[in-house]
Design a binder for these strands. Structure first.
Lengths: 210, 210
DNA sequence: TCTTGTGAAGTGTTTCACAGCT
DNA sequence: AGCTGTGAAACACTTCACAAGA
């Protein structure tokens, strides 16, 4: 059906819109204008209308967007009509911080598995989960319905972690290791590189410093 | 001098180039072509040449780019000719994971201060630092020369953490809390929102699922 | 009258293709 | 002969501005 192409830049803004509209719902606001959404999300009204128009004609002229229906349509567009199951690969400090991170559950994600290469860690408790061995990945991914893999291994193990995830059937990867993952077409990788982000800040800082 | 405008999209790619060129230096490769850099960084040769041309005429026609000189010019362009000092605000699990994160030091950053609002935590050890009180921020930021603030507080405290940083003279902020920070012009904020990244993955995943 | 939805204009980014050096 | 540097073309994204509908 809607094989219409949504621009990547629009997709990148949708989670922000969804967050503020859910916030408005919590405040019992029944309707929002594009200007109100823009204000909360940090963009402009024309951008909001254009972005939302890719999902469908969701608003009512003269009135605005119905909050409940907007949440419904945006969640569906983002594939978030049901919870997504997440596996964390690499259970060091960062992996542990992410497993425990409160901001996942309320935004539609559940951490359902934790893997580590260190056999000492395998079988130990990770919240209400047990750390699994990388060797059991295919089985665990299948049994627990993992949708998304999060890589928090050291850089040198990230590529092999990615390959194990992909072999196990995971096609969506969020990579915290500072290496570019080589993956086949059909696999989506999002890179989160903290040092790169800080170097971008450093660039802007150095402009201020003249 | 070079008041030339570097496109933001180019700035976003420079840290990736810097990383792979430093890697090539470690492999004792003296010269790299734009094609080789593109291959390692995951883009194309024309893009690399265009991006690098904003920094200057760094290459040699017929030969390629001298690795040492390229690192020098890119580091300078990114304001990374000297180390940058980082303060972490919010010393929970994520803050703790970041303080300990090895990938900072080798890419030009030092964590020089850790703040927390919880007076119980103030004064306790955080690696070789002591947790500081938010009340002492101005003093600590000045004394230790903090360049960049990293916010890892709960969402509801992030805005006030940002304001304290800005009052203390910090103009570059990396925000992990899932809220948009309201800041005045002249302050640069980079947002890292894990749930948003995963929702973008979910979007692409749902396309595959038809 | 108010606010959406959207063509069209404007702006920014990427890719092409080749002149210019080495 | 090989590879960079860069205008020009192609493409993508954002903003404008207004017709259409409530």
């Amino acid at each position: 059906m809607s094989a219409n192409q949504i621009p990547e830049s629009t997709v990148a803004r949708l989670p922000g819109y969804l967050r503020v509209v859910i916030y408005a719902q919590a405040l019992r606001m029944p309707v929002l204008s594009s200007a109100a959404i823009a204000e909360m999300a940090g963009t402009n009204a024309a951008q909001v209308r254009k972005d939302l128009s890719y999902i469908g004609e969701l608003g009512t002229r003269g009135a605005g967007y119905d909050v409940d229906s907007l949440i419904d349509h945006m969640s569906r567009a983002l594939g978030m009509s049901h919870h997504r199951n997440v596996a964390i690969v690499g259970y060091g400090r960062l992996g542990s911080a992410l497993r425990n991170y409160g901001g996942f559950m309320d935004r539609g994600f559940s951490v359902v598995a934790v893997f580590d290469a260190d056999e000492e860690k395998v079988g130990t408790e990770a919240g209400d989960l047990l750390v699994s061995s990388l060797d059991d990945m295919s089985e665990v991914v299948r049994d627990r319905g993992v949708d998304i893999g999060v890589i928090t291994t050291p850089a040198e193990n990230a590529q092999s972690a990615a390959e194990k995830l992909i072999e196990s059937g995971v096609t969506s990867i969020l990579n915290f290791a500072p290496v570019r993952l080589e993956v086949s077409k059909g696999v989506t990788v999002k890179q989160v590189d903290l040092a790169s982000e800080m170097q971008i800040l450093s660039f802007h800082l150095s402009r201020l410093e003249e």
